[in-house]
Amino acid sequence: MNIFRLTGDLSHLAAIIILLLKIWKTRSCAGISGKSQILFALVFTTRYLDLLTSFISLYNTSMKFIYIGCAYATVYMIYAKFKATYDGNHDTFRVEFLVVPIGGLAFLVNHDFSPLEILWTFSIYLESVAILPQLFMISKTGEAETITTHYLFFLGLYRALYLMNWIWRFYFEGFFDMIAIVAGVVQTILYCDFFYLYVTKVLKGKKLSLPA
């Protein structure tokens, strides 16, 4: 465990908690893509099936349970508890265009052709693009609440820190996982445009709104 890995995990946790608290405090999930949140729940479910087969550490196990629990709590809030505030009309990204090709790719490009490994690979590929419905929704409405942008910032920062972690691990441990690295690079690139807007607008106290 190096500093990039730890801060990456904490950044990921911060993002998840910020989103949950935003929905809970405002009693509203306006501006949040339920589709992205379903994809993230699917990502955690397919990736952490190894909870049933192997024990890494107390840290590892607890974080997995927290991520899965929070992901389903978020989906529950959007599609059940605060359903009336969910802006489904703007959440129109066609997720089957992501899930189906990624399922195929996970079958074709993986480390080992076994069920758990294919599901893990699927989760890595899916995570890299799971934010697209949310970004699509923002581009459609042309704006995002500031708290939503903080969520996106920490979520993007997390994978960028993991990239640093992988560079660290390559140099100091000789460890590298090509599938995770390539997907992680794709995932981080998807946030670059957003990072730019976050720094130039939100951090200067302005609301994130896109030109019409």
Partner: peptide, 10 residues
């Protein structure tokens, strides 16, 4: 290529 067994990352 790399570890297919133990996934210590999240």
């Amino acid at each position: 290529d790399s570890a297919t067994t133990e996934k210590d990352e999240l």
